[in-house]
Nucleic acid binder design. Structure first.
Length: 497
RNA sequence: GGCCCCUUCGUCUAGCGGCCUAGGAUGCCACCCUUUCAAGGUGGAGACACGGGUUCGAGUCCCGUAGGGGCUACCA
């Protein structure tokens, strides 16, 4: 049984500012965020930029944008401030340095002067760093120091025994201390390593639950020892499962923005790729929440508020998961279907504009409802309904092969178009259901199947084989324009033959 | 290699010793509906990695094997 912590729940997401946000990291952050919100606690963003070489400018902005888009609000962080700041590690150097000194003074850590050459030699010999500076006599250390020999501070890992830790998701985990090396705490450039920095920060920022990916599990015992050496109360830990590539092979790539799955198609991995691909943030959150955790009640679709009300770190599945990206299309489609039309129209507008269309908002509001059930992503609107926003004057009739329906030849197609034009023109009420009735009667009269007539009209009026429903489309285009297009189709058919 | 973690349909998952002839979702297939495409409806194929224990009883507990993932940096 794991003891509950007292005090407020405070969780954090602590990315390195190395570039665009990876969906795997976001999922970890989501769980931390759910947990904090569930308990009325705080969610903190901390930037871990202790590796100067990997830090890229603008990355913090990208991180913030990602959270903003997803609707994951941050209580404390570099932008929002907070009483435990600064929230960027490079601005907290003295703190880490003094903690490192404290550890040296208390005999828990030591100065190590191993050179890069020595280190690589040891590595080649196998076994890694051999602790050769661990028990250096004080004078010898002082001499090297005086020589100006650069060095690092390493932690003195116990040479024997075990370290046991409690993980919220996996229960008790045991490690043999002899397996651990004397990890570097403070680098020769004065920057701390992750091992030191995160502990110092999690302590001073009063983090109650450390959530992080499983790849940190092997260094868990080291961290536990450091917490103890510093004499601090430990938070609770949860090592989260990670996302694997869709084929189950290897961790979902962080380096490559995209990669090919089994079918050779590339899948979105970075947050901005989800935006570009036309996914809704609500759908992405829902999608991520369903990996490694589940709502219960066999429900796949749920709101953020509902998830928060139920979420618990204890319920997270310890196993890694293949990235089930195919499910996102379905989920996104469900969200689009359920979306409010005005909201959807607002999302569709920029997509169409980016594709080069001039968007009339009133028209878009009419189009959105008939699109809902057939869009998987926002981007689908371009192919499906872009024609609504083309310059109508410039509409050109489609080629005969688009016009001609199943089991119809040119002559049959011409007959349909010729008959439909005047019939539609004679209508007083041009609503789609009225059109349906009239065209159904026409099909019967001409001896064609409904689909043949309707399909011909669809092609004539949209220029496409696949489109929103024909009569709804004609209703939006208007009677005059619809008839004009049908005549255009007829003319082009005559010209072609 | 050493150490650690993980293992239920193709995939995401439910299952916390008897409710399991293993449930849901997605994907796939079929049929229905139908105004193309979708959506929707109905149905279908599809899993407890393997071997030992423990137990009256194991998908559920233990051990081993196999497989997968991770760590093994002055990166996080």
């Amino acid at each position: 049984m794991i003891a509950e912590t007292r005090g407020p729940v405070r969780t954090r997401y602590a990315p390195s500012p190395t570039g665009p946000q990876h969906i795997g990291g976001i999922r970890s952050a989501l769980f931390a965020w759910f947990f904090a919100r569930r308990h009325g606690g705080q969610f903190i963003l901390r930037i871990e930029d202790t590796d100067q070489k990997r830090t890229v400018p603008g990355a913090i902005e990208m991180i913030l944008e990602s959270f903003d888009w997803l609707g994951m609000d941050i209580d404390e962080g570099p932008l929002q401030g907070g009483e435990f700041g600064p929230y960027v590690q490079s601005q907290r150097l003295e703190l880490y340095q003094s903690c490192a000194r404290q550890l040296v003074d208390s005999g828990h850590a030591y100065k190590c002067f191993a050179t890069a050459a020595e280190l690589s030699e040891m590595r080649e010999a196998g076994g890694g760093y051999d602790r050769r500076y661990r028990d250096l006599p004080p004078q010898a250390a002082a001499e090297l120091e005086a020589e100006g020999r650069p060095g690092v501070i390493r932690f003195k890992m116990p040479l024997s025994g075990k370290t046991v830790g409690q993980d919220l998701i996996r229960g008790q985990v045991e490690f043999d201390n002899t397996q651990l090396q004397d990890a570097v705490l403070l680098k020769s450039d004065g920057f701390p390593t992750y091992h030191l920095a995160h502990i110092v920060d999690d302590h001073y920022m009063q983090i109650s639950h450390i959530t992080r990916a499983v790849e940190w599990l092997p260094s868990f015992p080291l961290h536990l020892r450091i917490w103890d050496a510093l004499g601090w109360d430990k938070p609770l830990f949860a090592h989260l499962p990670v996302l694997l590539n869709p084929n189950g092979k290897g961790k979902l790539s962080k380096r490559k923005a995209r990669f090919a799955d089994a079918d050779g198609t590339s899948v979105p991995v970075l947050v901005h790729e989800f935006i570009q691909a036309g996914y809704l943030p609500e759908a992405v959150i829902n999608f991520l929440a369903n990996i490694g955790w589940n709502f219960g009640d066999d429900r796949e679709i749920f709101s953020v508020a509902e998830a928060i009300a139920r979420f618990d770190l204890k319920d997270v599945n310890p196993a890694n998961s293949a990235y089930p990206i195919a499910k996102l299309d379905w989920l996104n489609g469900q969200y689009i279907q359920a979306a409010d039309c005005a909201y959807l129209a607002g999302l569709l507008k920029p997509v169409l504009e980016n594709a080069g269309y001039q968007v009339d908002e009133a028209r878009l509001r009419k189009v959105a409802p008939i699109l809902k059930v057939r869009l998987k992503t926002l981007n689908d609107v371009v192919d499906m309904a872009g024609f609504f926003f083309d310059d109508w004057e410039c509409f050109a009739a489609p080629a005969p092969d688009i016009l001609m329906q199943k089991k119809m030849d040119v002559e049959a197609t011409r007959r349909v178009l010729q008959a439909a034009g005047p019939t539609l023109a004679s209508m007083k009420d041009f609503s789609h259901d009225q059109q349906y009735l009239v065209m159904k009667a026409l099909a019967k009269e001409l001896g064609f199947k409904n689909g043949q007539v309707f399909g011909t009209l669809r092609a004539a009026v949209t220029g496409q084989k696949v489109s929103p429903p024909t009569f709804e489309t004609m209703e939006i285009l208007g009677q005059a324009e619809s008839i004009r297009r049908i005549q255009l189709a007829e003319a082009s058919l005559n010209a072609e033959t």
